[in-house]
Amino acid sequence: MKHLYAFTSRFFKSKRALFGGVLFLLFTVAALFAPLLTPQNPYDLTQIYLQNSFLPPGSSFWLGTDEMGRDIYSAILYGLRTSLYVGIASTLFSMLIGLGMGLVSGYFGGWIDRMIIRLADIQLSFPAILIALIIMALWGQGINKIIVAITIVSWVYYARTVRSVVLQEKEKEYIEAARALGMRHHHILFGELLPNVLSPVIVLATVRIAYAIILEATLSFLGVGVPMTKPSLGTLISNGYEVLFSGDWWVSIFPGIVLMLLIIAINLLGDRLREVLNPSGGF
C-alpha cells in the first residue's frame, strides 16, 4: 500500500497529469451517477417531447435540446456511460487476447510465431475503421457488438508490443538464469516474463482506450454503432451535424467538446504514466 501511495503522489506531481486526472474523475463520476445528475433520462422515450426539439441552451434545458427534444446535457452524461463502458471493456478484452498471443508468439517462436504475425500483418493492412465498419454493417447495431468489433480490431497492437518486449527480454540473463535453474516454460512465461511485459502494455492501454472511444463514436456517427434510441456521444455529434450550419450549433458542439476533453484527459494520464514507468525499473 505504501508503494501505491508513493507512486500516486509522484504521478500527480505533474500539473498536466493532475488536470487530466481531475477531468477524467469528473467524467467518470458524472457517467456513474448520471441518473441522479440529470433531469431527464434521454433513453426513455416517454420523457421526451418532440415539441421541445431544437431548443437553444436556456434555463430549462441547460445545453439545449436535439432534434428529438432530448435534453443535450442529460444525453451527454448518458452518452459518456456508453463511451466509457465501450472503451474500458474493449480495451480489457483486447489487452487479454493480445497479451496471450504476444507471449506465446514471442517466447516460442517458430511456426506459431510466424502464423500469429501473418495474421496480425494481414489485419493491420486494413484500416481499423474499415474492419469495424464491415463487422457492424454485417452484424447489426448493439453496444456489445461494438465491443466485440473493437476488440477484434485492437488486439493486434497489444500482441505486437508484447511480442517485441518478450523477444527482447527472452535474451536477458534473468531468463537464462531461470532456465538454468530448471524452470519450466509456463512458469517462465507467467512468472518471469509477464511482470516485465505488463508495464508497456498498461501504457499502451491508456492510449488505446482513447482510440476505442473514438472508434465507437465514429461508428455511431456513421450510423452503424449504437441504436438511435440510445445515443452515444458519437451519435449526438452526428445528429447535430446536419443542423450545425443552420444555426442549431449546440446539438453537435457540446457533445463534441465533451468527447474532446475526455480524450485529452486520457491522453494526459497516459503520457504521464509513460513518463513515470520508463526508464526506472521499479514501479
Binding site: 536477458k172 540473463e173 534473468y174 537464462e176 538464469a177 531461470a178 518471469e192 511482470p195 516485465n196 525499473g281
Partner: peptide
Amino acid sequence: YASLNPRK
C-alpha cells in the same frame, strides 16, 4: 542487473 528479474 540483467541476471535479476527487475520486477521481483
